[in-house]
Design a protein around this nucleic acid. Structure first.
Lengths: 247, 247
DNA sequence: GCCGTCAAAATTTTCGAAAATACGCTTGGT
DNA sequence: ACCAAGCGTATTTTCGAAAATTTTGACGGC
C-alpha cells in the first residue's frame, strides 16, 4: 500500500515528489475549482453549467462530475438532483454554525498537538509563522483584494499548529471547517471597504503553543476564530445592504 | 430551489415522494455499495475492481467512479491514486479515534436537540424506539448474522434523538461517524462467537432525553458509545487471533 | 543466481457522444 | 385573458470504448 489519498486538504502537494508527480485530470479539476470557490472567483449560488465549466477547465463531463461530487461532500458545492451543480450558498447562520464547531474542534486538535508535538512540529510552526508574518506585514491594506500568498501561509500556519494532533478524524473535520471559513473570509475581503487592521493574534497564539500552555492556546484560538467571524459577518452584512443580498 | 442533496445519510429516501422518485444511477450505486460495506459484505482492504464491481451493479465506469468518490469522502472507501479503490481498512486505533470524536459530537447534538426539540421530535423518538425495541427483543441471538432491520431501526432511533439539533454541520459529522462506527459493529457481529447480551441502554437514553435531562442524557450517551466500542474491540481482537489479522 | 529492462496483459482513467430529463415557449381551449 | 398540455430546446446524466498507467512475467546480462 502506497499513498492513500486523504479526504481533503493535504496542505499542498508539492509539484514534484521523487520521480515526477502523477496527477489525475479529475483531481486537478477538483483543486482548481476549489481554489476558484475559495478565493471567491465563483460566487455563492452561481450555477456551474457543465458545458461552460467543462470548457473552462478542459475536461470531459465525467471527470468534471467527479470533481464536483468531491466538492459537494466538502460543502463547497451544492447539488440539486438532475438540475446540476451550483456553488454552495452562504448565510450568516451557516457561518455561525461553522464557527461554533470550529471553536470545539480547533482547541481539541490544538491541545492534542501540544501534548504530542515534537521538535519537528515546533520547527514547522516557527517556519510557517515566519513566512506568514512577512507577508502579513507587507500585505497591501487595499481592500477588495484576495491575496493568494497570504491565504496560503495563513492556512499553512494554522495547519502547522495542530499538525501533531494524532486524531485523523479530528484533523479531517477541522480541515473541512477551516476551508469553509476561508471561503467566507475571502468573500468578505472582496467586499470590504475599510482597510484591514493588523493584529498580533497569530504571534501570541504561536507563543502559547510553543510554550505548551494549553489553556492559553485554547483561549487565544477561540478568540481568534470568534473575532475573525465577527469581522466577516460585519463585512458581509454591510455588503448585503448594497447588494440587496446578492451573494 | 428545490431539494439540495445532503452530503450523507438522509436516513432513508422513501421510494415514493409525490410524483415518483427520481433516482440517479450513480446515487443508487453509492447507496448500494455503502450498504454492502456497512453490513460487512465487502471486507476491509478488499480491492474494488472496476470491471467486477461494475458488472455486479450494472453501470458504467464513470458512474461507479462517482459513487466511489463519494464513499471515499465518507471514509468507507480508500483510493490509491491510479491504483483504484478498495474498501477502507479498519484498525482498532481508528475505531478509538472515531469513538473519541463521537463522544464529543453526540452529546453536543443531543443537548442541542433537547433544547430545541418540539412535539414532533418527541413523537418521532417514541415511534422509532418502539420499532427498534420490538426488533431488539425478538432479534435472534445467533451470532454471526448482521440483522438489516435491527441496524435500520437502531440508526433511525439514534437519528431521531438528535434530529432537533439545529446545527447542520454537527449533524453531518455526527452522521459520518455514526456510519463508520456501524461498519465496525457489523464486522464484529459477523465475527462474534458469543450471543449478544441485551441491555436497556436505549430505553434509559430515551427516557432521559424525553424528560429533557441533558446531563443524564449526555452521560448515558457517552456510556453507550464507549461500551459499544469496547465490545466491538473485544470481538475484533478475538477474531484477529484466529484470522491472523486478516481483516 | 540475481538484478534490471522491456514488452504483454490487466486495470484504471478519461473522453466524446447518446440517452434521459428538465425547462421554456407556443398553442389551443375555456 | 388565463391556464394546461404538448413540443422543441437546453442541460444533465449515463454509457461504452479509447487512452493512459500500472502490474506481471520473461528474458538477457552481469
Amino acid at each position: 500500500m502506497t499513498s492513500i489519498e486523504t479526504v481533503s486538504a493535504d496542505g499542498e502537494n508539492k509539484p514534484e515528489n521523487g520521480a515526477g508527480t502523477k496527477s489525475t485530470v479529475a483531481g486537478d479539476a477538483y483543486r482548481k475549482l476549489r481554489a476558484l470557490i475559495l478565493q471567491g472567483a465563483l460566487l455563492p449560488g452561481q450555477k456551474l453549467k457543465f458545458e461552460a465549466t467543462q470548457q473552462e477547465l478542459g475536461l470531459s463531463a465525467s471527470s468534471l462530475r467527479e470533481a464536483l461530487t468531491r466538492l459537494v461532500s466538502e460543502g463547497l458545492v451544492a447539488s440539486a438532483q438532475r438540475r446540476g451543480f451550483s456553488v454552495a450558498p452562504v448565510s450568516i447562520e451557516e457561518l455561525e454554525d461553522i464557527t461554533r464547531l470550529r471553536n470545539i474542534l480547533e482547541p481539541l486538535a490544538l491541545r492534542d498537538a501540544i501534548e504530542h508535538g515534537d521538535d519537528a512540529w515546533e520547527a514547522q510552526i516557527l517556519a510557517t509563522y515566519h513566512r506568514f508574518s512577512k507577508i502579513d506585514a507587507v500585505q497591501g491594506d487595499a481592500p477588495g483584494i484576495v491575496d493568494e500568498q497570504w491565504s496560503h501561509w495563513h492556512r499553512a500556519f494554522h495547519e502547522a499548529l495542530v499538525a501533531a494532533c494524532p486524531s485523523r478524524k479530528t484533523m479531517q473535520f477541522r480541515s473541512v471547517l477551516f476551508e469553509q471559513s476561508e471561503r467566507y473570509r475571502a468573500l468578505s475581503v472582496a467586499r470590504r471597504t475599510q482597510p484591514r487592521k493588523k493584529s498580533d493574534e497569530h504571534r501570541r497564539l504561536m507563543e502559547a503553543v510553543l510554550s505548551r500552555d494549553g489553556d492559553a492556546a485554547e483561549a487565544l484560538m477561540i478568540r481568534h476564530v470568534t473575532m475573525t467571524t465577527e469581522f466577516v459577518i460585519q463585512a458581509l452584512a454591510a455588503a448585503q445592504q448594497d447588494d440587496g443580498g446578492r451573494i
